[in-house]
Computed example of a mutant assay.
Amino acid sequence: MTQEILDQRATAVIEANKYMTLATVDADGRPWVTPVYFTPDGHTDFYWVSSPEAEHSLNVARNPDVSIAIFDSSVAVGQASAVYFRARVELVPDEELERCAAFYSGRLRGLRTFTAEELRAPADLRLYRARTSHHWLLVRGGDPEYGTGIDSRRAVWS
C-alpha cells in the first residue's frame, strides 16, 4: 500500500463522518472527551460551533492543545476506519468570522445557517477551529495489505 492510498483512506474517513471526538484537559489535568458536529477544510482545519461555557470550550480556553478522533461507530467490530489528530484550537478571529461561518454552515445543507453575528461575542455560541499538526490513519490488524494481526496507526499527509 502506498502513502497515496493511506492518504486517500484517511480523506474518505473525514468525508464520510459528521462528528469528531474532541479530547481536552481541564485545569487539573483531567481529560474530557466530547463529540462535536464538524465541518472539515481538507485535513488541516476543522470547524465546530459550541458555547464558550461548555466544558470542552472552557478547557481549550486554558489549554488549546487537543487530540481528535474521527470514526464511524456504527460499523461491526473489526471493521473500523479512523483518523487521529493532534491539533491546536482557536476561536475564529472576528475578521475571518463571516467567511468561516458561511463555510461551516455549508455542510449543514440547509438545516441551519450561522451568521457571523450569531457567533460573535457576546452571543451564546462561538465558532472554533482546530488546526492539525499530526495525522494518523488506523490500519486494522486484518487489513489485506498492511495487516499485522494488530491494529496500528500510520502517519498520513506527511
Score class of each variant (00 low, 15 high):
Thr2Ala: 11
Thr2Gly: 14
Glu4Met: 01
Ile5Asn: 14
Ile5Met: 13
Ile5Trp: 11
Asp7Val: 05
Ala10Asn: 06
Val13Phe: 00
Val13Thr: 10
Val13Ser: 00
Lys18Trp: 01
Val25His: 07
Ala27Ser: 14
Ala27Lys: 09
Asp28Asn: 13
Pro31Tyr: 12
Pro31Gly: 09
Trp32Glu: 11
Val33Tyr: 05
Tyr37Val: 02
Thr39Ala: 13
Gly42Glu: 12
Gly42Tyr: 05
His43Ser: 12
Thr44Ile: 02
Phe46Pro: 04
Tyr47Gln: 02
Val49Gln: 01
Val49Gly: 02
Ser50Asn: 10
Ser51Lys: 08
Ser51Trp: 04
Pro52Asp: 03
Glu53Gln: 12
Ala54Val: 06
Glu55Gln: 12
Leu58Pro: 05
Asn59Pro: 06
Asn59Ala: 07
Asn59Glu: 04
Ala61Gln: 12
Arg62Glu: 10
Asn63His: 08
Val66Arg: 06
Val66Asn: 05
Ser73Asn: 10
Ser74His: 09
Val77Cys: 09
Val77Phe: 14
Gly78Trp: 05
Gln79Cys: 07
Ala80Gln: 09
Ala80Glu: 14
Ala82Pro: 07
Val83Gln: 06
Tyr84Ser: 09
Tyr84Cys: 09
Phe85Ser: 06
Arg86Gly: 06
Glu90Met: 13
Glu90Val: 13
Val92Arg: 14
Pro93Gly: 07
Asp94Phe: 11
Glu95Asn: 10
Glu96Gln: 14
Glu96Asp: 15
Arg99Ala: 06
Arg99Thr: 06
Arg99Cys: 02
Cys100Asn: 11
Tyr104Ala: 03
Ser105His: 10
Arg107Tyr: 08
Leu108Gln: 06
Leu108Val: 10
Leu108Lys: 15
Arg109Tyr: 11
Gly110Cys: 07
Gly110Phe: 13
Thr115Pro: 05
Thr115Asn: 03
Glu118His: 11
Glu118Lys: 15
Leu119Gly: 02
Arg120Glu: 05
Ala121Tyr: 11
Asp124Glu: 09
Asp124Ser: 14
Leu125Met: 12
Arg126Tyr: 02
Arg126Ala: 03
Arg126Phe: 00
Leu127Val: 09
Leu127Asn: 10
Tyr128Gln: 02
Ser133Ile: 05
Ser133Glu: 15
His135Cys: 04
Leu137Met: 08
Gly142Ser: 08
Asp143Tyr: 02
Asp143Val: 00
Tyr146His: 10
Tyr146Asp: 13
Gly149Leu: 10
Gly149Lys: 15
Ser152Ile: 01
Arg153Ser: 12
Arg153Asp: 08
Arg153Cys: 09
